[in-house]
């Protein structure tokens, strides 16, 4: 009897083992992934799922949905931002450094070659003629002082963390950068006002004409020792005027876009504004370096025009002969010191 029970148990166990694969087969069919991770159908299980490549075919960025008011936080991936970052962190410092150092080097080389541009003494030496009245000088210096602060604080955005922070430490740099940012944002307003005033006051004297072309062909007095004819502003000064008007307007518009972020533009637009602002800012600084050079070290007597407002008559005759004739024609008694415009600044 005992042997019969043992035999029966053995048969039941054998039958169970034989039937087991058939019993579990349906469950295995519902989970087609094999041990090697591949689908037995020959495809990857995630092949049909949504991926970045698919989403970027629908739009240029990947966004989600958020319930807070700041809808910009729904932006998940925006490849254009990587290009902006590459420009700001890689290209911009090199462009800025090469532009500014290149201009400083070029001015130094020009000074070594040409020296200070002097004016020969004449019978008119020692007499004075009013070149810029008080209001014009006020507008110039308000714009100029703001420009210098804006330039230094602007360059701090590009070079501060690379050049200043290793020297003065992160704590001091943090404080300095914070104040530089305040000055950049707030002094932008008197700068923009100054540009508007200067354009309004001087535009009538800066319309290009044939005399400018002759001045350019003669080298503007930089080459040789002669001085070509010029009216109140020569072609070089007109170039500076239109540069300040154009760059000033561009810096103002792009700056306002950044002062009021996302008011008009989206994230792509904001980044484009920063790129334009930075590139024009560097070009602006490069151009103004040349303006500062010729107005101070490069030409004797030039600074007086914006310093005291009065220049030596011999200097004026040499550099702006047509203007001197016009001014003297206004008065019968030669050199005049009559203020042509009201002067609220003094």
């Amino acid at each position: 009897m005992r042997r019969a029970v043992t035999l029966f148990s053995t048969l039941v166990l054998a039958a169970t083992l034989l039937a087991a694969p058939g019993v579990f087969a349906p469950a295995q069919a519902q989970s087609p992934q094999q041990q090697d991770g591949l689908n037995p159908m020959g495809t990857k299980p995630t092949a049909d799922s949504v991926n970045e490549e698919f989403l970027f075919k629908q739009a240029d960025k990947i966004t989600g949905r958020v319930s807070i008011p700041d809808q910009k936080s729904a932006n998940l991936i925006q490849p254009q931002g990587r290009e902006y970052r590459a420009f700001r962190e890689s290209w911009l410092p090199w462009i800025g450094a090469l532009g500014i150092l290149g201009m400083i080097g070029a001015l130094g080389a020009f000074f070594m070659w040409r020296g200070r541009i002097l004016t020969d003494d004449t019978q008119e030496s020692g007499k004075k003629i009013l070149r810029f009245n008080a209001f014009e000088r006020f507008a110039h210096w308000m714009t100029a002082t703001c420009f210098i602060v804006l330039s230094l604080s602007g360059l701090n955005y590009i070079f501060g963390k690379r050049l200043l922070m290793p020297v003065i430490g992160p704590e001091a740099f943090g404080t300095l950068a914070q104040w530089a940012k305040y000055s950049h944002v707030y002094l932008a307003w008197p700068f923009m006002l100054g540009v508007v005033i200067m354009v309004a006051v001087w535009v009538k004297d800066n319309i290009p004409n044939r005399i400018d072309w002759a001045w350019i062909k003669a080298g503007g007095g930089f080459i040789g020792h002669g001085h070509p004819h010029a009216e109140r502003f020569n072609a070089g000064q007109k170039g500076v005027f239109w540069m300040v008007a154009g760059f000033g307007a561009a810096m103002g518009v792009t700056g306002l876009m950044m002062l009021f972020p996302f008011t008009v533009l989206d994230i792509n637009g904001m980044q484009v504004m920063q790129v334009i602002h930075a590139l024009i800012g560097v070009a602006f600084i490069v151009g103004i370096l040349a303006h500062i050079y010729i107005g101070t070290l490069g030409m004797k007597g030039a600074y007086d025009a914006m310093g005291s407002g009065e220049v030596d008559l011999a200097w004026a005759r040499a550099h702006h002969d047509l203007w001197v004739e016009k001014e003297q024609a206004k008065t019968l008694s030669g050199p005049q010191l009559k203020v042509r415009h009201p002067a609220p600044a003094e």
């Binding site: 008080a134 000088r137 006020f138 308000m142 100029a144 002082t145 703001c146 600044a345």
Partner: peptide
């Protein structure tokens, strides 16, 4: 100089 000082103050 006066115009410069006033310009800085105005800025």
């Amino acid at each position: 100089m006066k115009a410069f000082a006033i310009a800085v103050a105005a800025a």
